[in-house]
């Protein structure tokens, strides 16, 4: 075990994978000499050289398209997109190509690329350095989507992503890159996909969150405990595949659900989760499902703090579900 921040854990995960397998390489803008604008790839170029830590021209379409080619030929590329907000020039490569290679070739061409990108608000980044658009990728069949919320999960989910057989969109909550340190297992630590983590056990209401909203949900649960409401916080860890068993078991126990995400509400991941609960846990529900999310506007600069869900909003919503039934 070593204590480190979330971004250091990403770095250690990359390091571990590269050390263990010469086919693993990293490519992206400013990932080499600079070590990444958030320092996620710091030191890798020194250790593994510029052939495996590739500073690319400024083209996300180029980054992901070439990563796909490398993967088809047998390498294991980990592409970095500097901010999730800048992934769209590569959207065609991700949605039309990466997600569909295996299917359209009848299974002949698996295409395993990991695309890492910092996502989310909380750094005063305005419209284009703050968005949480995980739902686009969840909506695309053929992509797995992982979002860690702790240093240990950052390393463990990243190593699982790199060793997966399918393409993975790996979203890193940049707001908590350095906010907390945590113990991270040394070596080849892997957290399996599709295994949600119960952060705080509770009986009265289930709060589902992922990424940077996990600490917010946890803070809300602590506040609720002081009022005699026992909230359970579940960190989904991977949105695709989703650990439905843990989600359903939690709601069957508590009878109430609050879904939290930074992304806009309409057609956000919370809509899918709510639909699953309505379909499969309807008879356990004692109150309507509540969503605490970003608003259906673009992400603002000056008003970031009122846009992002905070613990007070989460607690308010949880309290309302408890009062209503």
């Amino acid at each position: 075990m070593t204590e480190m921040t979330l971004v250091q854990a990403v770095n250690r995960g990359l390091h571990e994978a590269m050390k263990g397998d010469p086919d693993v390489l990293v490519l992206g803008e400013d990932v080499g000499v600079d070590g990444g604008v958030f320092r996620a790839t710091e030191g890798l170029i020194k250790e593994f050289g510029p052939d495996r830590v590739i500073d690319t021209p400024l083209s996300e379409c180029g980054i992901v398209g070439t990563a796909i080619g490398m993967a088809l030929y047998g390498l294991k590329p980990v592409a970095e997109i500097q901010f999730l907000d800048f992934i769209y020039p590569a959207f065609d490569q991700i949605v039309s190509e990466l997600a569909k290679f295996r299917f359209r070739s009848g299974g002949q061409y698996p295409c395993h690329v990991v695309v890492r990108a910092p996502y989310g608000g909380g750094i005063k980044g305005g419209l284009y350095h703050s968005q949480s658009t995980e739902a686009y990728f969840c909506h695309t069949a053929g992509l797995k989507v992982a979002i860690p919320s702790t240093p240990a999960d950052a390393k463990g989910l990243l190593l699982s992503a790199i060793h997966d057989e399918d393409p993975v969109i790996f979203l890193e909550p940049k707001r908590i890159y350095r906010a907390v340190s945590g113990e991270v297992p040394d070596g080849d630590h892997r957290v399996p996909f599709g295994s949600a983590r119960t952060v705080v056990p509770g009986d009265d209401v289930s709060i589902f969150a992922y990424g940077a909203m996990v600490p917010v949900a946890t803070e809300a649960a602590e506040a609720l405990r002081g009022e005699g409401i026992s909230a359970e916080v579940v960190d989904l860890r991977t949105l695709v595949p989703l650990d439905e068993a843990t989600v359903l078991a939690s709601v069957e126990k508590t009878g109430r659900a609050v879904v939290v995400h930074e992304a806009a509400r309409f057609c956000g991941f919370g809509a899918e989760l709510s639909a699953i609960l309505a379909e499969k846990a309807f008879y356990s529900l004692k109150a309507p499902i509540a969503r605490v999310t970003g608003f259906d506007t673009p992400f603002p600069y000056a008003l970031e703090n009122v846009y992002l869900p905070n613990a007070a909003r989460v607690a308010h919503a949880a309290r309302a579900t408890v009062r209503s039934g």
């Binding site: 005063k124 980044g125 305005g126 419209l127 284009y128 350095h129 673009p298 603002p300 600069y301 000056a302 008003l303």
Partner: peptide
């Protein structure tokens, strides 16, 4: 601010 505080500085 004519942009109504929507954008980062310089935008």
């Amino acid at each position: 601010d004519i942009m109504k505080g929507r954008q980062m500085p310089n935008h």
